[in-house]
Amino acid sequence: MTPNPGQDGAPAPVAFDTPEEGVRAGSGHARRNMTAAELALMDEKVRKVEVLISMVLRVGVVISALVILVGLVLMFAHHGSYLSVRGGVSYKVLTSGATQFPHSFATLRNSLAHADGRGIVVLGVMVLILTPVLRVAVGVLSFLYERDIPMASVTFYVLVVLIASFFLAGV
């Protein structure tokens, strides 16, 4: 997880952050009482967290896009009539209010067992939906790593509500 210096975007935190004036985003909650060395260490931790959260989002997004793409390709491979060249089927068959598609774990499992393209797309969409949830979970751990208990508690509450929302929905 070494950040590429050219792509990294931000200059080294210490360059503009003076110990007298703690103005950086995410600087930790009791930084007023820190020495210069502690501040530099804190900034390094904060930077690591930023890079980690950015990476979680990017990986989630790339995986979901790839899975969705595979699902689409499979769907068109299995259904020649969906393609313009051999057209005949209107898109409305697949996008009307009465269209059937997997929307529970049971139907999704069944659809995946048949290597159904649309089932794989749903799987990719699930990865996409779970990416922000994973990001919040990483946030909790990050704030614990920064020893920032107030922010860790706040983020933990967000995580609990998010997970509850899925259970309450009956997913």
Partner: peptide, 15 residues
Amino acid sequence: GVYFVRGQIDPVIAA
């Protein structure tokens, strides 16, 4: 989660 269970996330549109 709610939208998924209610069947509002159509894969052909979502993809």
